[in-house]
């Protein structure tokens, strides 16, 4: 039986997330779209104490987050108890691409930039 152990890079994703990510654009079927006017300056800040602060459509939200290494997804739980799952498609030092597990926007990738 073949047995592989992936490099620890997957664990480092969690560390890489710990910054303020500004919404840059959306991508649907390889076509990029700018955020709407109300989404201008939207961001997510993942903190080391596993809490987050976000600005979504201009509205401030906060809650807790976790990263599932094996599932490659972030789970965010806001103050109202609503849980959102977002798959990490790409992460580099300055680029984060998420696909939110929400039926209406599942075909869309949200592209964030770290400033």
């Amino acid at each position: 039986m073949l047995q592989y152990t992936l490099p620890l890079a997957s664990i480092r994703i969690k560390q890489g997330l710990l910054k303020r990510w500004y919404l840059d654009k959306y991508k649907i079927a390889n076509k990029a779209y700018p955020p709407s006017r109300v989404e201008k300056d939207d961001y997510i800040l993942f903190k080391e104490d596993m809490t987050f602060i976000s600005r979504s459509e201009g509205k401030m939200e906060e809650g807790s987050w976790s990263f599932n290494t094996n599932g490659s997804y972030i789970e965010m739980l806001d103050g109202t108890g609503e849980k959102v799952k977002a798959y990490v498609i790409t992460i580099t030092a300055n680029l984060l691409i998420l696909r939110f597990d929400v039926e209406e926007i599942r075909d869309m990738q949200a592209i964030y930039q770290a400033h």
Binding site: L2, Q3, Y4, T5, S10, I11, K14, N68, T69, N70
Partner: peptide, 25 residues
């Protein structure tokens, strides 16, 4: 492609899924 391996045994109509070992913190 690297990490998933499915072992098929046609005689038993059974597919074994090899569980990868990815550490988490």
């Amino acid at each position: 492609l690297i990490t998933f391996l499915f072992v098929s045994g046609q005689a038993f109509s059974q597919t074994g899924i090899v569980l990868n070992t990815v550490p988490f913190d």
